[in-house]
């Protein structure tokens, strides 16, 4: 059957700028978990899968890669990584997910050949800024609360967070 030649179709692969930035975020996560064995292995695997996902342009592969990165960061944290490393690692993992998904989305909607750099840089900038702000806030909280925390307070906080997450998901039942 005479089908479309590949050259006839639009290249709907992930866009270059966001892909590169996503990989950079992944690499950032790897660097901050570098001195902890299990976490490092998982994170490196995550970056490799991310690269594969961005090559084939599949959202589920990209999501799986980001999940690997998140798990890697948590493993590193459980192994005793510094709080700052855990925070920055988590930011890198979530940024990698955000930027890689943006690359896949933009590729799917506009194609790789389209001029999209400005949009991509803006997204990346905003997401990085949000990440940095939360990292700083979390670190500040960590520094200000020293000594033994009352279990009762932690319990209350955790229940509050669970309730709020449930509320967010309820607002958006399909989410």
């Amino acid at each position: 059957m005479t089908q479309w030649e590949p050259s006839d179709r639009i290249d709907r692969s992930p866009t270059y700028v966001s892909s590169a930035l996503a990989l950079a975020a992944g690499v950032l996560t790897v660097t901050v978990t570098a001195d902890l064995a299990t976490g490092l292995v998982t994170c490196v695997a995550g970056v490799v899968v991310l690269a594969v996902g961005l090559t084939v342009g599949r959202q589920w592969v990209v999501t799986a890669a980001s999940a690997l990165l998140v798990v890697g960061v948590l493993l590193a944290a459980a192994e005793g990584a510094a709080v700052v490393a855990a925070l920055i690692g988590m930011m890198g993992a979530l940024l990698a997910f955000d930027l890689a998904s943006t690359a896949v989305d933009l590729g799917e909607q506009l194609g790789r050949e389209t001029a999209t750099a400005r949009v991509e840089l803006l997204h990346a900038g905003a997401s990085t800024l949000v990440g940095l702000v939360t990292v700083v806030v979390a670190f500040a909280v960590n520094q200000s609360v020293t000594g033994d925390q009352p279990v009762s307070a932690v319990l209350g906080l955790v229940i509050a967070v669970l309730l709020l997450v449930a509320a967010l998901r309820r607002a958006d039942p399909v989410a």
């Binding site: 944290a77 459980a78 855990a86 979530l94 997401s127 990440g131 939360t134 955790v158």
Partner: peptide, 22 residues
């Protein structure tokens, strides 16, 4: 939150704050 509580690991629990931020 889950892992942080089960492992009683502060760093894990705090990593969640970044996710909350996003």
């Amino acid at each position: 939150v889950g892992l942080g509580l089960l492992l009683s690991e502060q760093a894990v629990l705090l990593a969640g704050v970044v996710a909350v931020g996003y």
